[in-house]
């Protein structure tokens, strides 16, 4: 039998009692995320996929500069990688909660932290932080790629397009909005995954919710198409990337991001309620 040091010293206990429980939960969840190798890979993957997609799209773009050619939106084009990068962030968000259910470890988690909504909030805080970092890097990479490659695709200053630059208010809004978009997607997915609890089903539902409404919108005509694009998380949220006015735009940039925020809030609220009322 080894010797035991006994419980923490009384003054420590007293001090801890005064600190909020949620900060310990945040640290615990942070330790969990940090000690899973997949977290690092998925964050790196998000950046790589986002910037890589933008690079491929930029390389494949050849814009004709005729007088009747439609005006392009270089900033939105540079941020196209987010379309695909969000899938990786979504997987990270799903794994944050579903892997615990898959292994049955959620019972250990809830034994250590019986306040379930605090656990969900702690996961949300960590996911927000990680997505913020990955999103900032990915968006910066996209804008840099756009600035370097788009002039070669017929979208340079010689063609009447400004270089992609954060000095433009609209570009700054699109960039910051894209990072916020990724964070809101992560939170939306976290809520869905908490409600569903199964990894495979969650990934399927989440990717379907993100990618299928735009496809459905293509298949139907107005006004259904318009309404779909206004309320679907991806099409509404990505409105924040638009920097040139276009008749195809169905919702204002910040309003679109607001719709996505409502999705995320609704999803997290539902998840919090379900987490509280269901047996673990």
């Amino acid at each position: 039998m080894s010797t035991q040091t006994g419980p923490p010293r009384p003054h420590t206990v007293l001090r801890d009692e005064l600190r909020p429980a949620w900060s310990a939960a945040v640290r615990a969840e942070w330790t969990k995320l940090r000690t899973l190798p997949s977290t690092t890979w998925l964050l790196a993957g998000t950046v790589a996929v986002t910037v890589g997609t933008t690079a491929i799209i930029a390389a494949a773009t050849h814009t004709s500069t005729g007088p009747d050619a439609a005006r392009q939106d270089p900033t939105k084009l540079a941020l196209t990688g987010i379309d695909l990068g969000q899938a990786i962030i979504a997987v990270l968000a799903v794994l944050t909660v579903c892997e615990e259910y898959g292994a049955g470890m959620i019972r250990i988690t809830l034994t250590a932290m019986p306040r379930r909504t605090v656990v969900l909030a702690a996961k949300a805080v960590n996911l927000t932080g990680l997505t913020l970092i990955a999103g900032l890097v990915a968006v910066a990479g996209c804008l840099m790629t756009g600035r370097l490659m788009l002039p070669g695709a017929g979208l340079g200053t010689a063609d009447g397009y400004p270089l992609v630059s954060l000095a433009h208010t609209a570009t700054l809004r699109a960039a910051a909005g894209s990072v916020l978009y990724l964070i809101l997607i992560a939170l939306l997915v976290l809520g869905i995954a908490t409600a569903i609890r199964d990894t495979a089903v969650s990934v399927g539902v989440v990717l379907a919710l993100l990618y299928l409404p735009p496809l459905l919108a293509q298949a139907v005509s107005d006004p259904l198409r318009r309404h779909l694009e206004q309320i679907a998380p991806m099409t509404a949220g990505l409105a924040v990337q638009v920097t040139t006015s276009s008749p195809a735009q169905v919702i204002a940039p910040w309003a679109g991001l607001g719709i996505l925020a409502m999705w995320a809030a609704g999803s997290l609220t539902t998840a919090g309620v379900l987490l509280r009322i269901r047996d673990a």
């Binding site: 997987v91 898959g102 199964d198 990894t199 990934v203 990618y211 496809l215």
Partner: peptide, 24 residues
């Protein structure tokens, strides 16, 4: 062998081309 990876890969390989085609 892992659900998350397999479903994501399945959707990217088998579904995404249909979305990229007309959509993006």
């Amino acid at each position: 062998r892992r659900a998350a990876g397999a479903v994501t890969a399945g959707i990217i390989v088998y579904v995404l081309p249909n979305l990229l085609g007309p959509g993006v």
